[in-house]
Design a protein around this nucleic acid. Structure first.
Lengths: 344, 344
DNA sequence: CTGTTAGCGCATTCAG
DNA sequence: CTGAATGCGCTAACAG
């Protein structure tokens, strides 16, 4: 079905149909005819062709590192909230934590009909910078700092520092271990961890080199790293993890490790859980304030970032440049809130 | 940058550039010139215009009810796997469990450049049926049965039945409560629950009307429902939930409820957790085999569905109709696997 | 108010 | 091998 066919069936020009569709001047009489034909045929105008003409899609593309993440869903919820209010829709592309795919999808969105792009960043490579510098479509980066685009990021260093203090206190003179992520990720891999070290120092403690492990952004990976740690080092009091997801893996490791360590008589589900969560000398901390984790464990020390807020602000920034051509670059840093163990 | 400008700069016709881009006949000489100009300008052909001509986008659109879900991410992982191997890319649209938005995004994908659509279904309304019947673009529905499109769904009834048996056994003569979801969702709301009832009956038990609650697909909602249940009924031995997410909420409710119920001397973190997970007479079951939940709790009885498989099969089905114009309709039912508590 | 005309950026005949 | 010409489906002037 094309606009031309509709026009013929209704006995008018295609321009009239177009005007009918877009609220231009059409006589009542013709309006009726057109309406009738459209209903009969179930005609839907091709958004594609329209966009080719108007250069306006009312669509924003969002590139995310993964789909199954509470923090990311909070960001996208924030984005959705503001763009839908302004008549836009959102398309997601998941890169599965693969920086190459990130570029691929960025380029996809660059040439497909979206008015702007939000990149929920992980690693900013040279390719990324090149893209950001050269692209004509408005981009805002959420979750990472970059000088090549409007960006809005979190105070990872501050959050790390706060958590470093907490970990040092909780360890109470004992050893603290840290499971981080690749330092290619400036926000989570570097700032968060460096802040953590600083926090520990401020509390008079120190993070020893060989109590540090690196994991992927997955539970499995956290599990492996924590297990390794627990087997190698017998004096760990706190395992701090760069994300709550990793922390969940660490908790799992504690659980499975304790099976081999605790006395036989405590070898039942309840006993083990008790061992883990209170009697165990090992405490786990995270970042991100994952709600599922909090719900089923009663909560671990973690940090709440303004993920939804970053989505909201990010979308606002993007729409400002899309609609008002706002030209002056902006970078925005968002704070955090420490979440101590709930239900104390 | 348009193909025309490139052609001028290279001193050739736009057709030559087009051929260069698409592997047609171009002399080595001109190839060089074009290549040079393209590199200098960083020209990227407009996918949009190309698609308008070729009617081929190498893109599939996936409509999902929410973003932050392990089961859904497993489905999309399956889809990704097969389509990327075949040179396609995937765009996601999240509807936030809102059937209206589902239609909106379905229509978006209908008119935007995608070659096919996968709908991860929740509620199939009349609007849905209308869309499926009338649309020209290939659609496959995953997770729900429908006769209006190729579909691939899970044996929710069978899974429910298996879990009903387990719950009845676990209750050991005591009361079983069930937290379901809207019956507008045929798979989860009806089949799963009806199967559950059947399973209990088969085990010689019965699910009483007033031990049934309805929740949304969220933890919070599960929390509320479970709390209500726990306060009203004092003889519950098992709370079975329609999803693991809801189950997580139920566990949280158990946790918070127990605070008011258990003796003061057990009022510390470990004691409470122990109470919940072993001493407590209340057991929680779910569906979906959520890995995070399993990791941090040690696992509850649940059911593993072939979510990733359904994504794989769904994508294969879709590509078959896109590329080979496969016309004969298919419906496919996938089995399940019961997951008893791990680490027994 | 209306129809005609001219592209949006590209791929594809069809003569050379 | 190549360029000129045509049209994908639509909207935006433009002159009625």
């Amino acid at each position: 079905m094309t606009i031309k066919e509709i026009a013929q069936l209704a006995g008018v020009s295609s321009a009239a149909v177009s005007r009918y569709l877009n609220g231009g001047y059409v006589s009542e009489e013709k309006k009726e005819q057109i309406k009738k034909v459209i209903q009969e045929t179930g005609y839907q105008p091709s958004a594609q062709a329209r966009i080719l003409r108007t250069k306006k899609a009312c669509l924003v593309g969002v590139v995310v590192p993964k789909i199954n993440s509470e923090s990311i869903s909070r960001v996208t919820a924030g984005i959705e909230q503001v763009i839908s209010r302004r008549g836009y829709q959102m398309l997601l592309a998941s890169t599965d934590n693969n920086p190459e795919k990130e570029i691929t999808y960025l380029k996809l969105f660059e040439n497909y009909p979206v008015d702007g792009i939000i990149l929920i960043g992980t690693v900013i490579t040279g390719e990324h910078r090149k893209f950001l510098k050269s692209t004509k479509v408005p981009v805002v980066v959420v979750g990472q700092y970059t000088k090549y685009a409007n960006c809005i990021y979190h105070d990872d260093y501050g959050a790390g520092k706060a958590m470093g203090r907490i970990a040092a206190q909780a360890a109470d003179g004992g050893k603290v271990a840290y499971i981080g992520v690749t330092r290619e990720d400036k926000a989570v891999g570097i700032s968060r961890m460096d802040g953590f070290c600083a926090g520990m120092k401020a509390a008079g403690a120190e993070l020893s080199e060989d109590y540090i492990r690196q994991a992927e952004f997955t539970m499995d990976s956290g599990y492996q790293a924590a297990l390794e740690l627990l087997e190698e080092k017998k004096d760990i009091r706190v395992i701090s993890c760069a994300t709550d997801t990793i922390a969940a893996g660490a908790i799992e490791a504690l659980l499975s490790h304790s099976r081999r360590e605790i006395p036989k008589e405590a070898e039942n589900a309840g006993g083990r859980m008790q061992y883990i969560l209170s009697s165990s000398p090992v405490q786990v901390t995270g970042f991100g304030d994952n709600q599922l984790l909090k719900a089923v464990t009663g909560g671990i020390p973690t940090v709440h970032f303004g993920y939804k807020t970053s989505g909201i602000r990010g979308a606002e920034l993007l729409l400002d440049v899309i609609e008002r051509g706002e030209k002056i670059p902006i970078e925005m840093k968002l704070g955090f809130r420490v979440v101590e163990k709930e239900n104390p």
